[in-house]
Each structure stands twice: as C-alpha cells, then as structure tokens.
Design a protein around this nucleic acid. Structure first.
Lengths: 341, 341
DNA sequence: AGCATGAATGTGAACGCTCACACTTGTTAA
DNA sequence: TTAACAAGTGTGAGCGTTCACATTCATGCT
C-alpha cells in the first residue's frame, strides 16, 4: 500500500496505468466480467491493493444509470419490532451487495415523509423497503410519491394488493386463545394496541374470531399505545372489576404494565389471572412471572423482504405478492389453569 | 406536474430549457447562490415543480468532489442504547441536510468492519459517526481504515484523544451509590457488564471509587452480558449467599433478571434487598417493583455528535475534543432503607 | 492457405452535475 | 466622458465511472 503524494482520489485510470491495461479492463475486473484473462485479473487486483483503490459508488451509479443502493424507510424505531426489522434487513442487504440509505419517519408527519421521498428520488435508489406498520395518509402519500420505484412493504395490512412481507399476527393470537382455552379459561379479556396499527387490528381480529370459534364472550378492557405505562393504566382503571381469568395483551410491554397493576391490586399471576403478551422481547422471559407470548422470526422477515425486492428488480414480477410468516407460541409461567376452577 | 413521455430522467438541462435559462443558473438556484435575480429564481423553481425534477445526488457528489452523505456505523442494535443513538443521530443529520448511509457491524468481526470501511470509502462520505461502545481490535482496524475521513466516535472510552461524545456513566453510578448510602445501605454489591464495553468499565469504576469514598467494602458478585438472562443466572448461582442489602446492576435488563431471581429465592424488593439499574429503558418504570435507575439523554447525544462532526468538517478543529453528557438519577420503588436495620 | 470464430482488450461518448472563468449589462465615481 | 465595478448570466471542461462498439489476436475448420 503506497502513500499518495497528493490527496487526489485514486481512480480507475491510476489502477489501469499501474496494471498496464486500459481503464475498461479494470472496470471489467471490478464488475466480475467473465472475459478477462486470469493473469490480467490478478495484475489488476494487485494494482487495486497497491494503490488502496476504492471505486466511486457515485460515479458508478451515475454512469450505469442504476444504483446499488436500497432505501429503507422505518418508523417507530423506539419499539422492538421495527428495530429488529431494520437490523435484519440491513444484514440481508449487505450480504447481497447493496448499500443501505435510511430514513426514519413519523407516520403522521407529512414533512418527514416528503423528506424521505426526496431522498429516495435524489439517490435514484434501486428499490425501497418500507416498514409501514401504521395506516396513515402520510404513508399513502409517500407510496404515491415513490411510485415507479420497486417497493416492498413490510409489516403491512394482510391482503394488501402489493409486494409485501408480514407476520401472521392474526394466527398468533389464535394460538394464544387456543392455549388459554385448553387451560380451561372461559373468561378471556383483551387489551388492544393502537387503532391505526395493522398489527393491533390483526391481533384484535384474531382474538375475536378465536373466541367465537370457542363460543366464548369477548371482552376488550381497553386500548393501549404499546407502552407498559398504558397497560398499567388500563388495568388500574378497572378498579375491583377484574372479571376475567385470563388477559390477552397485544404486546409484551403492555403485558408487563398490566401484570404490574394486577399484582399491585393483589392478584396472583397465573393463579388468579393468566396474562399473555406478543413479540417475545428478550426480557419477556425474565418478567415476574416469565411471560407466555408469541415469537416472530425477524431474521426471516428481513431475508424475505430483500428477496421479494430482488425479484421485483429482476423481472418486475413477483410469484407471491404477499409473503406471510408464521409465528410461534412460547409457553412460560404467566399462564396456567385458573385456581377458581 | 407533467407526466414524462419517456422514462428518461429529468435533468438540470430540461429544467433550464423550460425556464429559459442556462443550466448553470438552475444549478445556482439549487445551491442557493445569492446572485440570482428573484424573478429568475421563481421561474426556475416553477420549472422544477412542473417537471417534477429531483437533482441527482450521485452526480452532484461526483462533480463537487465532496458529498453530503454521513456514514453511521453502529453495533449491537439489539440493545436499547445504540438504537436510541442511531435514531437521534438520524434526526439531527436530516435536520442539517445530510443523508445517512448506515452499516451495522459486529464488534468482533473483522469482515463486517472491512465491509463498513469499504462502503464509507466508496461513497466518499463527508464524515463518519461511529458508535463504538466496545473495545475490540476490529474497531481499531476500522478507524485505521477510514483514517483521513472526519470522524466522531460515540459512546467511547473516557479520556480518548479523539473527537467524541460520551455519557458520564462513571458519575451515573456514583449517583446511585450516594443514593444507596443515604438510605443507610452499607453492604452494596454489584453486577458488572461485559468486560470489553467501555460503559461497563466506567460503571464498574464509578462503583469502586464511590464505595471507597464512602469507606465501604466492594463486592462484585458477577459479570453479565447485558441480558436479563445473565442477571438472573448470576443471582441464582449465589444460592443462599445473599450477603448484601443493595445490588447495583450495570443495566436495566440484568437488573430485571436479578430481581426475578431474588424474588424467586424469597427476598422482597426493596424490603430485603434494594436493586438499581442503568439506562432507564421505557419498561423500567413498570418492572415489579419499578426500578430505580440512571437516565441518559440520547437526543442530546445525537445533537452533540452531529455538531462535533460539523465542526470537524468546517474548520477541521474542535473546541472540546470530548463532549461529556451528564446522566440523571431516577428514583423509583426498587430502593429503600433496608428492613434489617 | 484462407476465413470465420470467439476470447481478450481498447476507444469514444455519455451519465448529470459543479467549478472556474468569461461575458453582458446597468450603475457609480472620478 | 470613461473607466471601474458589481450584479446577473452563460460557456467549456471535468468529476470517475459504464456502455456500445471497435479492434486485435490466436485458434480451428474447410
């Protein structure tokens, strides 16, 4: 590795000169073109190493009129789910040789959406992955704005007529209800998540339909905002009116808050009330008591998201429009047959 | 907004033609050059809107030989801290008009570091923010590799001789010890975080020095890996040997696990044992009992990180090399004067 | 021997922008 | 009156690549 005398950038021409070939041959080596003699290839790679050369992505994208950048639009990175999605998408993308440019948006903020769309257009990204767990006008505007750019939506409404990857959260809650029913629970209440979230809707619907199948009365005691605080408040506001033996909560954090409030009110878990969560955050196992919950495979989600996008990029057509990933019920200590029986 | 007949990209020339000016004038408008007549500016902006024009960032960066992209290198996005840092950095960067390209690395994995360095060089980023809470050879290699690119390190060793922003975690733990001492605790034990993490070291040192100041014996009962599981195991492995009235845990998750194990062994918190955490994750308030912990201002961290970087970009010199952000003690229900007194 | 074939390499132009400079005006000061 | 200046605008070149095509050279076939 030589030091450069000037701070001028090392270009493909410098490499070509050193290797004694034309710039085009260097370009071929860079792009793994098959018709380069082994010997030449070695010589070029040698020169690249020696000069400490890095191809300019900006120049490549400009000249090739296509980019190797994927845009990721996320929201609500404060929550467990979206963060996991981002990390796993990044991993998949890097493995496939894409760079990631990323924008975090506020689902209700048109400004942030416009900024994200601007960025995606300016960089002429090859494709976009939008994590859109919420239904808002701002999201619709974003999708409209990037119309024409291959796009896969993550964690969106089931049945959406667009390339997407989702978890089967509806089924996830059904697994929970089936489990509780098998434990002899008959009075099963629920705490919903925020109305605008697709996931909250799916979990709600799963509860309703499973309860109907089991011929049980539904009882939604409140709607939280995913935070432990809201779960706590909903249970606390119930006062002495805990007329259920099991409480199905739409996510782990709210379940934590709910358990906290139940125990404060003198209820034992699971002896008096069983509680379940959703997401299986890493801490759930160590809540008191350890939480029965539903696990989602984020790694698979990331992979599938990128795969869908690549299919779109290749032949502009997807075999399955919506990939649905099945969740897994995780049994722990917060559920049991009620003692009142 | 007109539809284009061809899918050819709208360029600066198209805008120029429509506005009846030269491309250079359009460029001036794009870059807010002062010497453009108001009327001309309006006409150009009009044309931009009409044609739905987005300047090509790739072309701009190439021509200008400088980029408006900032690279962010993160690690351990599974944890609360790094995620918060990323989100807040993104917000600050966007506000200042930078785009963010991002790479998540594994601190021990040289491959991932090399991939990150590659990306940063290929994009000729204006600057880099490295979240480096761990001391590893791979990180050192990364910093070496991007030598020459303005770089601010986040959450790094105190006293490091490089532009950086950190939390005063040493002081944070001291606040905890002072609090416990004021509650009459004398046998205060600690659970450390993983050895390679700067934060774990700072928290450990803060404990040692504060205990010495209070003339108390130190007692480290174990070293966890930040997970609730490890906190649980450390306390569980103690068996009946709980010879302390207060347990200072290096983060909230491990504190959760520790509390779980303590309660399972029949100890009441805080009556028998006080427990404290660190980070103030959103759930900490709803642990059972609510956790006394230390809060860190991530928003400020993001702002300061970007500000440091901008100073580096502007005059290549920083007034203060290391910005230190003070933490805040959050008192909750997991600490009290011990009943044994 | 002559010629098509394919592998390996080279050449000019283009991608969409910014930079440095040059050019037109109209206004001000000597 | 005339130079000097500043405001506003335009022109040529170049950033570091890839693309389409052209060229060279060895090889095998008739």
């Amino acid at each position: 590795m030589e030091k450069q005398t000037q701070s001028r950038r090392v270009t493909i021409n410098d490499v070509a000169e050193r290797a004694g070939v034309s710039y085009q041959t260097v370009s071929r080596v860079l792009n793994n073109h098959p018709r380069v003699a082994e010997k030449t290839r070695d010589r070029v790679n040698r020169a690249i190493k020696d000069l400490n050369y890095y191809p300019s992505s900006a120049a490549r994208d400009l000249a090739a009129r296509r980019s190797r950048v994927i845009g990721v639009v996320t929201c609500s990175l404060a929550y467990y789910g979206p963060t996991q999605m981002l990390v796993n998408i990044e991993e998949s993308a890097r493995r496939e040789g894409y760079d990631l440019i990323f924008a975090n948006v506020t689902p209700t903020d048109n400004k942030s959406m416009q900024a994200a769309a601007d960025m995606l257009r300016r960089w002429a990204v090859a494709g976009v992955l939008v994590i859109a767990p919420v239904k808002t006008r701002a999201y619709a505007a974003l999708l409209e704005e990037i119309n024409g750019i291959p796009c896969v939506q993550i964690d969106i409404e089931r049945g959406t007529d667009a390339a997407s990857v989702i978890f089967d959260q509806y089924r996830g809650i059904q697994l929970v209800i089936e489990h509780l029913v098998s434990l002899q629970h008959r009075r099963i209440a629920m705490i919903d998540g925020p109305e605008e979230w697709f996931g909250a809707k799916a979990r709600h619907d799963g509860y309703f339909d499973a309860m109907q199948t089991a011929k049980l009365r539904t009882h939604v005691i409140g709607r939280g905002d995913w935070t432990a605080a809201s779960g706590y408040q909903i249970v606390e506001s119930l006062g002495a009116d805990v007329s259920f033996s099991a409480l199905v909560v739409a996510n782990d954090q709210m379940a934590l808050g709910a358990m906290h409030a139940l125990m404060k009110a003198g209820y034992r878990i699971p002896e008096d009330v069983s509680v379940t969560g959703f997401d299986d955050v890493p801490e759930a196992q160590f809540f008191t008591p350890a939480l029965t919950t539903v696990r989602q495979n984020f790694s698979l989600l990331g992979q599938q998201g990128l795969r869908q996008l690549q299919l779109l990029l290749e032949d502009r057509t997807t075999p399955e429009l919506q990939v649905i990933i099945q969740p897994e019920l995780i049994l722990r200590a917060s559920t049991a047959t009620p003692h009142t029986l």
